[in-house]
Nucleic acid binder design. Structure first.
Lengths: 105, 105
DNA sequence: ATCGTATTTCCATGGACATCGAAGAAGCAG
DNA sequence: CTGCTTCTTCGATGTCCATGGAAATACGAT
């Protein structure tokens, strides 16, 4: 994880709308949610949502899978963990809330 | 930590320059770094740096303390931990890299 | 008071982003 | 092939962001 990639992902999450999208997907878990479901749930224009999803997907935070005419979106937990790890690695070593890694590099 | 605040902080970190600033401060630890020190270290214009610092400070990620004519900047670990906690709470519960909280709210 | 250092504010510029409606494309059903 | 549903791309608009030079401010020293 280089600093550019981390910044890109942080920026992707650093927008209220996208963060709401992301959290909805996290809550949806493995089943994910179709784009239309997100759209109704969050009450934003379809085209706006599509742009935001594109951004989340291109940074690797979200994945999509086609099921017939609907596109199912899922949060990519691995990416999120990488990002949290990146922040925690250098940023939280001393802090009370401390984060423990187990194996990883 | 509400979603607006989280998004604001994520956005503040979601810029390569500001992330570099922040990481430099994290590495500097308790002693912090003066604005001028950061400026030389990162090689960016003083006014640009000042803008970015302002942003980091207004989101609570960085603090400043005056020592005569120099301003010492420090990373605010508590804020960082709050943010990581916010992400981890909902986002990483199942993941391999899992994050453990101890006491805090 | 004057000077010098440290940092911010002012101002301007180019570029990127957020938003949405309308039109297009992808895929199934009949 | 026609029609229907789902989603994306296009086009346009307003807003906010990143950057840096120049001027202003803050503060200590002489």
């Amino acid at each position: 994880m280089d600093i550019e990639e981390a910044a890109t992902q942080l920026e992707a999450l650093g927008n209220t709308t996208r963060l709401r999208v992301y959290r909805a997907l996290v809550r949806a878990g493995e089943d994910g949610l179709p784009v239309g479901g997100l759209q109704m749930k969050l009450g934003i224009a379809a085209s706006t949502l599509s742009h935001h999803l594109h951004r989340l997907i291109s940074t690797g935070l979200v994945t999509q899978e086609r099921q017939a005419t609907t596109l199912i979106c899922r949060a990519n937990y691995t990416a999120m963990n990488g990002l949290v790890g990146f922040l925690a690695d250098e940023c939280c070593a001393d802090a009370p809330y401390a984060v423990k890694k187990e194996g990883a590099a």
